[in-house]
Design a protein around this nucleic acid. Structure first.
Lengths: 225, 225
DNA sequence: CCGACTTTGTGCATCGGTTCACAAAGGGAT
DNA sequence: ATCCCTTTGTGAACCGATGCACAAAGTCGG
């Protein structure tokens, strides 16, 4: 019942998807330095992964390498970009223009790869109307209208924790299915909506755990040898 | 009566460590709402995970639940905090006080759980000497001195990509072994140093991949090549 | 004190992902 | 054209994480 028209396997493992942007960045750097072809070994080192893993990852996209030679940098950049959907233009809205939202609006890494900050939204009347990173901050009451008017398909939540779920519900109601959440809450969304979470304090806590272990805590029975 | 399972298995799976902060946050919320005990089912829902997974995760810390009842919220908060090393005070330095570094310095989530921003460092003479979030911004030339003086054990890198590796090398040289890196580069560090990476543009790219797939559906036409 | 009920802790099957190791494929030299 | 050298692409073993399902352990009402 499935359409066999696709030459490539469309079931790319999640772990692979998460690494493709890494390869892409390394490849961009190489392209800028005028490198035309690269071996899996060199690219793996540049991306900080094992070369067998890299080859298996790329094999999920298709057979784009040349044995005995390696991969054509430009071509691979194109293929990965296309696979990730970066050949199209994504309109992103940032909701919550506090310190973090502001930083995100100004973050160069967004625009650089197919993403465009298309709207800034906040609830604070003090901030609404300000121009940040060349964009006018709009009022949260107009959230739905702004999303539709600007064709926003990805929403970045940088609101306080207490407001995140409500904003989330509203953007989901107008059809947004991709959300990047910086608020420290577990969002509840329909199955069809994709939420990714970035939590700064969780990362620190994980570091603290390992740091504590290294340091050898007071009540700790270290099993080293 | 607590069971004599104090120094429980110290080999806690990485995946479990990554979820403990999530449980901790949910538990804090419950403690604030006056909830005394919680079942694995309820806590799992609050943390957005499967209850069997939660029980297995907690079992790695010890046997802290009571069958037929659940877990004592306060006690579990304490146990997880201790395991993560949050019962001690961690001095964090933020290097790079651009938009992102500023946002991090003001981010409440840091201080709230055992972390203390102990120093801000930047290379820009325009910024050095400013007071941000109650802290004086110090010059990058004094990096090593500041780290030693303030007892910094975790460094947050919020510098431009080009500067990250050099700063990293310097902090590693004075003994820092835990780094949270926001710069879009692969840092090379000795085996003993722990680096965690947060990359905003990578998260967006992963979202774009799934969004593209949703939008296109199984019969999406993709041109040849 | 007992028996019904609740919920934990875990053995086990399973799954996705990683790594190894090598045959197959291609380029370049002669 | 043929041989040698390099590097890809992948089968297969391995490893850690997940989720099911249930016995064990404990509570509570009567």
């Amino acid at each position: 019942m499935k359409s066999p028209s696709q030459p490539r396997d469309r079931g790319i493992p999640e772990a692979t998807v998460a690494r493709l942007p890494l390869y892409l960045r390394a490849l961009h750097g190489m392209a800028e330095r005028g490198i035309a072809t690269v071996s899996s070994e060199d690219l793996a080192v540049a991306a900080g992964v094992n070369s067998a893993k890299l080859r298996k990852d790329l094999s999920h996209l298709g057979s784009y390498g040349t044995r005995g030679v390696g991969y054509d940098v430009e071509y691979l950049v194109y293929q990965i970009s296309r696979e990730l959907g970066l050949t199209q233009d994504w309109a992103v809205a940032i909701v919550g223009v506090g310190n973090l939202g502001r930083a995100l609006a100004n973050y160069g890494g967004f625009v650089s790869r197919g993403f465009r900050v298309a709207a800034l939204v906040d609830a604070d009347p003090e901030v609404v109307g300000d121009t940040i990173a060349g964009l006018n901050v709009e009022h949260i009451d107009d959230l739905e209208a702004v999303i539709k008017r600007r064709g926003v398909s990805i929403v970045v939540l940088a609101t306080p924790a207490a407001a995140a779920q409500e904003v989330c519900d509203r953007v989901v109601a107008v059809g947004v299915t991709s959300i990047l959440n910086f608020a420290p809450v577990v969002l509840s969304v329909p199955e069809s909506v994709d939420v990714r979470k970035v939590d700064l304090s969780i990362e620190l806590q994980i570091l603290a755990f390992h740091e504590q272990r290294k340091a050898g805590g007071p009540l700790m029975a270290v099993d080293s040898q």
